[in-house]
């Protein structure tokens, strides 16, 4: 039974890798596909067919099965050097092809980088950036204050939600009953989904919902902070020592008291540390979110960039760098002191 499923898994891996290899060689190296061509699904089917045949050959006939390598089906104890592991060579070939295709797809061009026009453009923008316009200093400072407070409020509002959710997302507290485990999985699922959506995307959603401005940015950061903090918090809870929990249960305490005395004292400082770090991250993210209308210094940066006023952009970059450095410094100092 186990033998069969392993054999199937190795074959599946070999089939997918062989198809990938054929696809790379066919569409990028031979025909140089671009976006405009669209996808030719018929020939994609042919690629899969060739991949299947090739995969079968690799898996069954040759000693080139990467699937078998991954699932440790090959006896490597006697292999000396890469010469006796042909499958490893095939792996390197796939890596090399991927690298080559990557170079093609990203349109790497030394010509663009070092061309006359390119150099001129670079000189122009760097000259402007290095000569910041201090006339917009007031505007920049006000905008960055908005950004810092926006990040702070996003962190502060996300804290109680993350705190409550984290207990339900901690496996060691929820595995007592089937109902508990169900809640655990549902919450974990929503946290994972909301965390995998970037704050930038949330900002776009909220800027349509509540209008462009710091409020939209705050909401975007908050959603992302809730899911990130809840995950970090719950992992901390999963790592606590069970002893105090057991002792509190033994005194006849109510489950809420058990958590308050058995769990909270063990996690409160790490929680605080994570939260301060999150504020630090949120200040940085708030800048980026401003670019899509989340308010603060990012929005201002976007406006000047749109007008090609590079001297003003230069000043804003200095302000952002200074604030980010300061926040980073302060948050690490604070986190050190509460260890």
């Amino acid at each position: 039974m186990k033998k069969k499923s392993t054999a199937f898994k190795t074959l599946l891996i070999d089939f997918l890798l062989a198809s990938y290899l054929v696809l790379c060689i066919d569409s990028f190296i031979f025909t140089r596909h671009t976006m405009e061509n669209g996808i030719d699904w018929a020939s994609f089917g042919v690629v899969l067919l060739i991949g299947l045949i090739l995969g079968l050959i690799l898996n069954r006939v040759s000693k080139l099965s990467i699937g078998k390598m991954f699932l440790k089906e090959y006896d490597t104890s006697k292999a000396r050097g890469i010469g006796q592991k042909p499958y490893a060579i095939l792996g390197l070939v796939i890596l090399a092809v991927t690298f080559y295709v990557g170079v093609l797809v990203t349109e790497l061009s030394f010509y663009e980088f070092f061309s006359q026009a390119g150099i001129q453009g670079a000189t122009r923008i760097f000259t402007a950036l290095l000569n910041p316009n201090f006339e917009v200093l007031d505007q920049g400072i006000l905008a960055v204050i908005e950004t810092i407070y926006m990040a702070f409020i996003a962190t502060a509002f996300s804290l109680p939600f993350a705190f409550l959710l984290s207990f339900f997302a901690a496996r060691n507290l929820m595995n007592g009953s089937g109902f508990g485990l169900t809640v655990y999985y549902v919450i974990r699922f929503f946290l994972n989904v909301s965390r995998s959506i970037e704050p930038l995307v949330w900002a776009i959603i909220f800027s349509v919902w509540v209008g462009i401005g710091p409020f939209a940015g705050m909401l975007a950061l908050m959603i992302h902070s809730v899911s990130s903090l809840a995950k970090l918090y719950s992992e901390q809870i999963e790592n606590i020592s069970e002893g105090p929990l057991e002792a509190m249960t033994a005194t006849g305490a109510h489950p809420i008291q058990v958590i308050w005395y058995g769990v909270v004292p063990q996690v409160i400082l790490p929680f605080l540390s994570f939260t301060i770090y999150r504020w630090d991250i949120n200040v940085r993210m708030a800048t980026v979110i401003g670019l899509v209308g989340g308010g603060g210094i990012g929005t201002l940066l976007m406006q000047f960039q749109g007008l090609a006023r590079w001297n003003e952009v230069g000043l804003l970059i200095i302000i952002i760098a200074a604030v980010v450095w300061l926040m980073d410094f302060l948050s690490s100092k604070i986190r050190e002191s509460i260890k």
Partner: peptide, 11 residues
């Protein structure tokens, strides 16, 4: 109940 590792509430 008392325990081998005391199980006091830290902090």
């Amino acid at each position: 109940m008392i325990f081998q590792h005391f199980n006091l509430v830290p902090r």
